[in-house]
């Protein structure tokens, strides 16, 4: 296990290095710069700004400086933020907002998805199954911003049941959580349905029945553990993506989360923030995949971590 972790950390660092390099040069190859879109600035001001952020140096040198700072854990100053906030500060303050919402959404998605999928599999080709398949097809086909807008219009504007600006009370979490969770819930439902259908037809389920095991025990102990692997695979990167926040959901419900910064940093060519958010997401995804691989080995003893 220790050797496995050591190897994985090494390969993760290599992966991360490649991501950093590609992102760095790709981002600088986009036309325009952080000061091109702002209100008219005089040449001398732009020059001074470029010196301040080190953008006047040759690209390869900037890359070297960035790596050196990165090793010290310094992600640099955000260019677009007027108060001169550091990227570290932005991630530190905004990530918890998105992560809280994302965490709730993942739990809801898992709960809904597993329930819908299991019922559908157990009631194969009956009404419940068809209903679940209908809902999940809808959930996968309808984009998040439509879903969010519809919920906002229905519960926020027409019925006036729920507030839809910011996250000031626990109730405010309902709409954005549901919007975030709906797609993954539907996806999980379909995954677990098809893998459960496969597992329930396996010989060892027949054996369990022949042993006189209770129905729910067969489902939970014998079927679910074998059927859950595809969901675990899907859940790894999903958790990373959902935790860092969704641009769409944070925009619609005016949530000051990290998700907004992913898109905004690119449109404003805020180079340090682009790098910072990308690296942050990459680390999270790499970490989640490592966790998934370890969980795999726990769920299925045939898969040995090496």
């Amino acid at each position: 296990m220790a050797a496995f972790l050591f190897k994985r950390v090494l390969s993760s660092i290599a992966t991360l290095f490649i991501i950093i390099t590609i992102t760095f040069f790709l981002m600088h190859s986009i036309p325009g710069g952080p000061f091109a879109t702002n209100e008219k600035l005089s040449q001398s001001v732009i020059k001074a700004m470029e010196v301040k952020y080190g953008l006047d140096k040759p690209l390869i040198q900037q890359y070297g400086v960035y790596l050196k700072n990165l090793i010290r854990g310094d992600l640099g100053l955000s260019i677009a933020s007027k108060e001169g906030k550091t990227v570290n500060y932005i991630i530190k303050t905004k990530f918890p907002v998105s992560a809280r919402l994302g965490g709730l959404a993942i739990m809801l998605a898992l709960l809904l998805g597993l329930l819908m999928g299991s019922f559908a599999a157990l009631q194969h080709e009956k009404f419940v199954d068809r209903l679940v398949m209908f809902i999940s097809t809808l959930g996968i086909a309808v984009p998040g911003f439509i879903m969010g807008m519809l919920l906002l219009l229905l519960f926020g504007v027409s019925l006036r049941w729920l507030n839809f600006i910011g996250l000031n009370s626990p109730l405010d979490y309902i709409l954005p959580t549901f919007t975030l969770a709906f797609y993954p819930a539907c996806f999980i439902a379909r995954l677990i349905r098809s893998s459960l259908l496969d597992v329930l037809g396996q010989d060892y389920i027949r054996t369990a029945r022949a042993k006189g095991i209770k129905g729910y025990s067969i489902l939970i102990k014998h079927a679910m553990r074998n059927a859950i692997l595809p969901v675990v695979t899907y859940l790894g990167p999903l958790i990373a993506y959902v935790l860092v926040g969704s641009f769409v959901v944070e925009r619609i419900f005016s949530i000051p989360g990290l998700g907004l910064f992913f898109v905004q940093s690119i449109t404003s060519r805020d180079y340090p923030l682009i790098m910072g958010t990308t690296i942050f997401l990459a680390v999270l995804i790499i970490f989640m995949n490592l966790v998934v691989d370890i969980i795999y080995g726990i769920i299925d003893p045939r898969i040995k971590v090496k």
């Binding site: 010989d203 060892y204 027949r206 054996t207 369990a208 553990r225 074998n226 769920i299 003893p301 045939r302």
Partner: peptide, 9 residues
């Protein structure tokens, strides 16, 4: 088929 009749996990 004893290969598939036992739960692998």
């Amino acid at each position: 088929d004893p290969m598939t009749s036992l739960n692998p996990v």
